[in-house]
Design a protein around this nucleic acid. Sequence first.
DNA 1: ATAAATAGTTTACATCTGTAATCGGTAGAT
DNA 2: ATCTACCGATTACAGATGTAAACTATTTAT
Lengths: 141, 141
Amino acid sequence: MKDTQISPSEWEVMRVVWTTHPITSKEISRILNEKKDWKLATTKTLIGRLVKKGMLTTAQNGRQYDYSPAVTEDESLKEASGHLLNQVCTRKVGELIEMMIESSTLSIGDLESLENIIQMKKENAPEVVACGCIPGQCTCS
Amino acid sequence: MKDTQISPSEWEVMRVVWTTHPITSKEISRILNEKKDWKLATTKTLIGRLVKKGMLTTAQNGRQYDYSPAVTEDESLKEASGHLLNQVCTRKVGELIEMMIESSTLSIGDLESLENIIQMKKENAPEVVACGCIPGQCTCS
DNA sequence: ATAAATAGTTTACATCTGTAATCGGTAGAT
DNA sequence: ATCTACCGATTACAGATGTAAACTATTTAT
């Protein structure tokens, strides 16, 4: 139930570890060099912070560590998307998701999955979403 | 085309101004008191920062200011959702959107709108989304 | 006219983030 | 047995963020 935050830079590291683990700091750094002009020290700092935040686990391997994710990408994504969703009136969430779909490239398969979920959702969808905003923070009222 | 960031606390203020404008700092603070235990000074600081960032415009009105948004909520939401989308492999965006739909309450109308957009999208949807990740940051390869 | 209430501005200060250099210990090379 | 390369840990430091007190100028009530 903790709500530790993964910063954007830290996220870059997490993505590497989610993709490959266990993995060493050296390897993480090597991979990220393709994308970020970070010194090895920078990557190590981020790794250290992620360990402290409990997002990475360590396994001693000789004089070094092997890192593995302590949280899944999906969990973290749920967290992150939750933050975004909380920034708008619940009644505006549909619009937000529309915007996201519009601005994304999605495959036929993706779109079909979405259709299915939407179909499901429709079974129990309310006529109108309740707005939980305080007066003055949205125009629903 | 600049990329000034609206922080979570600042976002609370923006939502008030998006809802009602022009509006005074006093009124913004009064509205937010319902939700945040902020001192008037805190709200003023956030307003000041938003003005400096160019997210709010001011119009002198006697000894005080009337504030109005300099960016729309939709623009800002697009920005914010773009950040989220950029945190995952393009090929995983569909899954992310699925998660968001699943964890949200959407009205029949919302769902129908989404269906329409998806229908449109399907006309030009690729069989598979191209992955733009560097090797090691996603499992597509 | 003076005092009290206000409005915005400046300053404050701890934490988080981005980015990195340096330190301290140890495994491997000579 | 030393020296060197390398690992994680510690320290650094500026900018962003959360939260707010203090300051300055002005308006309004007494």
